[in-house]
């Protein structure tokens, strides 16, 4: 499968070439990270992100051609997706209150428009089932310090993605968690470098995460 990567530097266009093995590995990585976040069997997951965004595409085999088992099939969850554009915030808010998912996966820049489309701006009261929020944070966007979703609901998990590194990790309290069997991750010249072990043709990719004592601590799972 060929996906156009998230554009950062127009008109530069990059593509992510994903073999079936890479797709499967990414789905396993996401399942690992969701499991660590507390997602469990029979949870409903609402994805409000672009369908070709790296974490969204491996949520389910229903979202990715060529993928036989997505993260939700691995974890035995159910899922619904809404395209990650602000124009669809009302639709995703409606689905959020109708489906009442335990898990919300949302792009960071959509949080405020999503919240304002829910009654009284209160995410928790629109959906009493909500337990876990995974905020998709694309590299190289600057790291948010805290994303406020509504009264009592803060960003508990930042789901960090790097298209060029084929990398998915969890950013929590200054630490970057990733499943060690899938990546080689190290600090180089003060920045976190990632290399997927499941895609041999990929070289190390330097992320925008600063590592070291004041920056991000790298923790393998």
């Amino acid at each position: 499968m060929i996906i156009q990567a998230e554009p950062w530097d127009e008109p530069d266009v990059r593509y992510i070439y994903l073999t079936r093995r890479s797709l499967e590995a990414l789905a396993e990585v996401l399942a690992n990270l969701m499991d660590r976040s507390g997602v469990h069997a029979r949870n409903k997951v609402l994805v409000y992100d672009f369908s070709m965004s790296l974490p969204a595409i491996v949520v389910s085999r229903a979202y990715a051609p060529e993928l036989r088992r997505g993260a939700c099939e691995i974890l035995d969850c159910s899922m619904m997706s809404v395209d990650g554009v602000p124009e669809l915030a009302a639709r995703s808010a409606f689905m959020f209150s109708m489906l009442q998912p335990e898990v919300l996966m949302i792009r960071s820049e959509l949080v405020s428009v999503f919240r304002s489309n829910l009654e009284r701006g209160d995410i928790a009261s629109a959906n009493p089932n909500l337990e876990i929020v995974l905020i998709v944070h694309p590299d190289p966007a600057p790291l948010p310090r805290e994303v406020k979703l509504g009264p009592g609901v803060f960003s508990r998990h930042l789901l960090y993605k790097s298209d060029d590194g084929l990398f998915l990790g969890l950013l929590e309290d200054g630490s970057l968690y990733y499943p060690s069997g899938y990546y080689d991750v190290k600090c180089s010249s003060g920045f976190v470098e990632v290399r997927p072990l499941f895609a041999k043709e990929r070289r190390s990719h330097r992320t925008s995460l600063e590592c070291g004592p004041s920056g991000v601590e790298v923790v393998s799972l």
Binding site: M1, I2, I3, Q4, A5, E6, P7, F50, S51, M52, P65, E66, D83, G84, V85, E87
Partner: peptide, 10 residues
């Protein structure tokens, strides 16, 4: 196999 652009049908 599939090839997909970034975005939605807008």
């Amino acid at each position: 196999s599939c090839v997909t652009p970034w975005g939605t049908t807008m």
